[in-house]
Nucleic acid binder design. Structure first.
Length: 645
RNA sequence: GCCGCCGUAGCUCAAUUGGCAGAGCAUCUGAUUUGUAAUCAGAAGGUUGCGGGUUCAACUCCCAUCGGCGGCUCCA
């Protein structure tokens, strides 16, 4: 064969200069690329597009091998393993209809329409069958036919979901569709796929769940099998260990063990009861936030829990948000429990004539809101029906919008750094159900985009995912395990100031309309605390820990000294617990360690003699004798809020 | 809301094929005064989520209901 190997970045690109078309696999074999190991090609990139190894390459094309190190490789693998799973399911459960099977962020799934539910036993059987298929190194063979022919073919196979997909493809103008054959299993698929099933040995089926066909609750409920796959058994093992670690850190489990909060059937789903330690943690966060906002030019305000329904009609919530709202009646008038805090803030704005000199007006409220969430979506602290937002509404002139958004993004950056969170940002644009003119939406969207761009902050765009009253930037933070959580948001609103006739007198003595920004940093305190619990695995930094120091006595002879230390530390404002029980020291240590308390002070005969405490740190397990003054200094140092240094 | 799984002591979990509902931890009482992750003994703790049904007999099987968990084109 004629070919030239072009020395490029790894992996090398090959220019196919032969007279005849050849498959990428043939080219790579001729070029002597490895047939095993991490450099073994699993697909090829031709002109920037990934194709199968069996794809025929026209003479003159540059062909680059794609191996498991390629950023796209994992998606290809997982998508292919989902096909392998479908092949196994169809073989083991004849008559089961197949729907769709994409790769997702952490693995893949495939939806099936089966008359009986899959059990954990079935998953084992399916896994075993998949291993067989993997060991057979079945080739993924692509085939293209006309869409019309494809419809007939799947009708003959009695696969209504595939027929529907192809019919939709035809409607959107496709005339050709592609298939992949793998063993006896044929599936409609755009591809590309791994060369053969042997790449897919490191997989694990994780769970089975119901899922509506096309996510529509009016369509049939299918059975979705979730799984994941990696290129090596080692990577799979690391991922499964991560899942185990996440389970250990589950805030619902830790919340109970650390006595932070509880949720009760008798009280109602999604309604959180804060126990002393959880309430203290929350109070610390609230105080931190009030302080942080005051020093950044915000005013702290408070509004009522219920407001007349007419007001929600005027704001548009009744028309666009009522399915999430609770209502009550007082003296014959209808009131709504607030799902958002903005309305009373607008009344504060409107309580007097406003000048451009008053702007920007930044109103901050730790506002408790109620939203009706479907019972099935409630989850610990992260999805609840009553929660407190660290909410602010910023009223400003149109020319101040850019700077205000930038300020908010700076605040977000500082706050996230305080908790060691990394974060991503997403810009969401106009949804189908929304109010306001096209011009307003465009202006608002551009303002948000401009602020992001001026900060050189990378962001993604979610088309149609904005709030009904305006576009938004969502902040998604990443915790210690690399999981992503939606928390803060900045929303631009040109419509509420219109509806509530907000004005200011500008420098030219003209009445003008202010812009309103809605924004949160933590989002909801409940969700944020849930995330913090998992992020720190319950071992909060000293400034957040509900109990910072626990004092333990060896015998009752040390009670007096321990009490003296406790009293002095409390006087200095530290959060202290003391354990004088007649128990062995090991028992007390164990309990305090499980409670993840940062500092343990031990008092015995030895300490009584020297008037010191034996200090043990949560982080090191090492001990050191310290005087009250020395320990207070250490504690003061450690309890500093990181962003205030 | 929908699909699947699960509800046994405060917590974590047992109970053979339908045959007397049990253990560890926690709690209480007593002994023990103890040096860095569990001292010993005893006691108490239950309408097996709730309501029906089948059966000589139900934690166990059936129906209904409430609640929890996993998920519902990855989207918060």
């Amino acid at each position: 064969m004629d070919y030239n190997v072009i020395k490029n970045n790894q992996p090398q690109s090959i220019q196919w200069s032969g007279p005849q078309p050849a498959t990428a696999a043939e080219l790579f074999a001729a070029a002597g690329l490895p047939k095993k190991g991490p450099e073994k090609p699993l697909a090829a990139r031709v002109g920037g597009v990934i194709v199968d190894l069996l794809a025929v390459v026209a003479p003159g094309s540059d062909v680059e091998p794609v191996d498991c190190r390629d950023p796209e490789a994992l998606d290809i693998l997982r998508h292919s393993v989902s096909h392998v799973m479908a092949e196994a399911v169809v073989k083991l459960f004849p008559g089961v209809k197949v729907a769709i099977g994409p790769s997702i962020e952490e693995g893949f799934y495939y939806d099936f329409d089966s008359p009986t539910a899959f059990t954990p036993d079935d998953l084992d059987k399916i896994s075993a069958e998949m291993t067989k298929i993997v060991n057979e190194s079945q080739l993924f063979i692509r085939e293209e036919i006309s869409a019309a022919e494809a419809v007939e073919r799947f009708k003959a196979l009695n696969e209504p979901y595939k027929v529907e997909i192809i019919e939709d493809l035809i409607k959107s103008g496709e005339s050709q569709v592609s298939f992949y054959r793998c063993g006896d299993f044929v599936d409609l698929c755009r591809g590309p796929h791994i060369a053969d099933t042997s790449f897919g040995s490191a997989f694990k089926l994780l769970s089975v769940a119901g899922a509506y066909w096309r996510g529509d609750e009016k369509r049939p409920m299918l059975q979705r099998i979730y799984g994941t796959a990696f290129f090596s058994a080692k990577e799979l093992r690391v991922y499964l260990e991560l899942l185990e670690e996440a389970k250990k850190r589950d805030h619902r489990k830790l919340g109970k063990e650390l006595e932070l909060f509880s949720v009760h059937e008798e009280i109602g789903g999604g309604l959180v009861v804060w126990h002393p330690k959880g309430a203290l943690l929350r109070t610390i966060l609230e105080e931190f936030e009030r302080h942080e906002h005051l020093r950044r030019g915000y005013d702290v305000v408070m509004g009522p829990q219920i407001l007349r329904s007419e007001l929600w009609k005027k704001s548009g919530h009744l028309d666009y948000y009522s399915e999430n709202m609770y209502f009550t009646e007082i003296d014959g008038s209808s009131y709504a429990i607030k799902p958002m805090n903005c309305l009373s803030h607008m009344f504060i704005y409107n309580s007097k004539l406003r000048s451009y000199r008053d702007l920007p007006l930044r109103l901050f409220e730790l506002g408790t809101v109620q939203r009706h969430e479907k019972s099935g979506v409630l989850h610990g602290l992260t999805r609840v029906r009553q929660f407190t937002q660290d909410d602010s509404h910023i009223f400003c002139t149109p020319s101040q919008v850019g700077d205000e958004i930038k300020n908010v993004l700076h605040l977000v950056t500082d706050m996230m750094a305080t908790f060691d969170f990394k974060f991503d940002m997403e810009l969401s644009t106009r949804p189908a159900k929304s109010i306001g003119t096209d011009e307003d939406w465009e202006m608002a969207t551009n303002a948000l985009k401009g602020a992001l761009e001026s900060l050189n902050a990378p962001f993604e765009i979610n088309e149609g995912d904005g709030a009904f009253y305006g576009p938004k930037i969502d902040i998604k933070l990443k915790d210690a395990l690399g999981r992503s959580w939606q928390c803060g948001t900045v929303q631009c609103d040109f419509t509420l100031p219109e509806r509530f006739d907000l004005n200011f007198t500008d420098a030219d003595n003209q009445k003008k309309r202010p812009v309103m920004l809605h924004r949160t940093i933590f989002g909801s305190l409940e969700r944020f605390i849930g995330i913090l619990i998992e992020h720190y695995a319950g071992a909060f930094p000293v400034w957040l820990a509900p109990v910072q120091v626990k004092l333990l006595t060896v015998t009752q002879r040390a009670d007096e000294l321990a009490n003296k230390f406790a009293l002095e530390l409390k006087k200095k404002g530290f959060r202290v617990e003391i354990d004088l029980r007649n128990e062995k020291l090991g028992y007390k240590i164990r309990e305090a360690r499980l409670a993840k308390i940062p500092f343990l002070l031990v008092f015995g005969d030895q300490e009584v003699q020297t008037s010191t405490a034996m200090v043990r740190l949560r982080s090191s397990d090492e001990t050191e004798a310290m005087s009250l003054e020395a320990f207070s200094d250490l504690l003061r140092q450690q309890a500093k809020i990181p962003s205030w240094n």
